[in-house]
Design a protein around this nucleic acid. Structure first.
Lengths: 365, 365
DNA sequence: CAATCTGACTAATACGTTTTAGTACGTTAT
DNA sequence: ATAACGTACTAAAACGTATTAGTCAGATTG
């Protein structure tokens, strides 16, 4: 008789309550051998049943699954991963000070979409917040060496970013959000910021604005570059004058940049903000300085969220489905994980301009 | 000669670039045997070195670690987990529609704090968003059976919540955010909502308000109950009249509840909102209805965030360090994972009232 | 000087699966 | 009648590490 011919102690009554006093005793963990014995088959059969492989009859398969279900048994994922199977984990590392992360609705929406699509495929998302890119890179190296994740999502692509090359070399399937331009070693999902910014500028120009302020985000980000390039192009084609001020996306810097722009002389008649947080902060500054919006100055936000809906006046903004951007990124990642295709650039829909109360023709018009 | 007496093909030059054209060929994975051979020791020695155990000399330990570092080798985490070691993963499941999740600054801040503390200990956070409690419970059962996580954080505790009992029975270390009252089978971190609400009510009563509106959150949540109980107590002790309206925390319902309260006659002279999102939405509605804030009606938010800072007037709010709440929860979870102590209730600091421009004495005063 | 001990290290086993290489048996083709 | 084949299943060999039970040389002790 084999030595392990005993079922681990377990009440057959599903609603049973383990004796709380014995918290120290480790409850015997079920193994596939237990399921096999109870179903009257071998462990191999259990494996075949759980992995939906041919080689056993439907009746046997059903019986095995029923036994497993009853005992709430599932294959130990470490043992499974050890055999080369997937971890069913995707990793995402965000290199920003954790305290400031919460203010960006963008992240939460994007993450929701990403997570939702991935968990449909049974893939969990592992999230890590680090201080800087150096730490981020170290995490990628560690995760790759430990075989911890099946895929990665890279955010905030900068000019001359070292991460795509590194991650590609680590051979971890990955997708970049925001990359474009030079051929990347990884698949990327990108938004046409140039066209989006042009949309705003054409709208403001049509209203009659000729001198426009721009509160931009972090200059090293590629999408910031693309927006600035659109502004450069529009200077010539639309014949308007634009002054850009760089910030770190924080409400504080958005506010102080607004103050600078509104105090300057001559004063611009419209301000474009690279994020919703800064636009809302800017509107606050304008109100505080008693500069009527949109009477004296119009305000446009590059991003849309509850922050642009709620103020009075509500802020004209480029709107995009950030949640859908997350699901799109997840779809690309799943495809990359499954097929390891050649890298490609996938374009997400260009944001649409939603006109609200914060924009109007300039004062003189 | 042992059959695996060959180093997997690997350039000694760290900056080397694998031939991109051979994307299909699987790069040989390093194993502890490789490190052992290169360091001139056995695999056991490698294990001892990596787990900081006695049994090898410092010189040997150093040599092993150097070889591993050079090749970017780290123990395969699945193999390690299979031997009973920790996964170094904490799980958190949020049962809310993913699309609405992004609007709550609370989650992002809390998650940031939690994550930051956990990753200090090398523990990653696995995040899953599900539709309802049923799905949430299924996830807990699956994760426990698969041995996927070392700890769990439970959110949004409701009255008669089934989850604490279930998770306790699954023997997964876990911490609840928001529980209190009846002795729970799990350690919980809780905030004294009763005292916090009382603080608001006393402040408003001192200003002279006698009829106050309350836009509450989801009634089945325990913290909502505690707030309502404080309101009940204050009716008697402070001699004020309060009308509560239940919502689902959304800006939409917050707005419509505000409309109802402001249209009622007699009209309340102050409104308390259970969340910052609803307070901001409510301020918008008041402005739209041309009800001056704080001239005709004062507004107080139970939660503080950028949403209460930015509007004009900025909203008087209870402020608490949500990020710190996350780190506190993480600390409790780490303790629970390490020591498996008896469940206990840990109280987080009671929120402080920050008076801003949205509150003033009632019109007649 | 023999017996004991200690430090540094290793061989072998266990963890719980998946996968490979079968076996046994009944059915069909030659 | 025999060979070939397919189906349903199983025994045994991985996967890469941690751990247990050693081995061995040299130091210490009685």
């Amino acid at each position: 008789m084999p030595p392990n011919d005993q079922v681990p102690l377990q009440d057959s009554d599903g609603s049973s309550e383990p004796p709380a006093s014995l918290a120290g005793t480790a409850p015997a963990r079920l193994r596939s051998t237990d399921i096999a014995r109870l179903a009257g088959v071998s462990v191999s059969a259990v494996s075949l049943a759980f992995n939906a492989r041919p080689g056993i009859s439907d009746a046997t398969r059903k019986r095995i699954l029923e036994v497993a279900e009853e005992l709430n048994w599932r294959p130990h994922r470490a043992a499974r991963a050890l055999k080369g199977a997937n971890n069913d984990v995707a990793g995402i590392v965000i290199a920003r000070p954790a305290r400031t992360l919460g203010v960006e609705p963008f992240f939460a929406h994007f993450l929701s979409g990403l997570q939702s699509r991935l968990s449909n495929e049974g893939i969990a998302t592992q999230l890590l917040i680090v201080e800087d890119t150096e730490a981020e890179v170290a995490v990628y190296r560690r995760w790759a060496a430990e075989n911890r994740v099946d895929g990665l999502v890279l955010l905030d692509l900068t000019v001359d970013d070292v991460r795509p090359r590194l991650v590609a070399d680590l051979r971890v399937p990955a997708v970049i959000l925001g990359g474009h331009g030079a051929p990347l070693p990884l698949t990327s999902v990108w938004v046409d910021d140039h066209a989006a910014m042009t949309r705003i500028l054409e709208y403001l120009a049509a209203l009659g604005h000729r001198f426009i302020g721009h509160v931009s985000g972090i200059p090293s980000y590629q999408h910031t570059r693309r927006r600035l390039r659109a502004i450069g192009d529009a200077r010539e084609s639309l014949g308007i004058d634009i002054a850009s001020v760089a910030t770190d996306y924080s409400d504080t810097q958005g506010a102080s940049a607004t103050r600078r722009l509104l105090e300057a002389s001559p004063r611009c008649t419209a301000i474009i903000y690279d994020s919703d947080v800064m636009a809302a902060a800017g509107l606050g500054v304008a109100t505080e300085m008693a500069v009527p919006v949109p009477g004296e100055v119009s305000i446009v936000s590059f991003d849309d969220s509850i922050l642009t809906h709620l103020p009075h006046p509500p802020i004209t903004a480029l709107t995009r489905d950030t949640y859908a951007l997350g699901t799109l990124t997840a779809t690309e990642l799943l495809h990359t994980m499954a097929e390891r295709p050649e890298p490609r650039a996938v374009q997400a829909p260009t944001p649409e301009l939603v006109v609200r109360g914060s924009t109007a023709p300039p004062p003189g018009a």
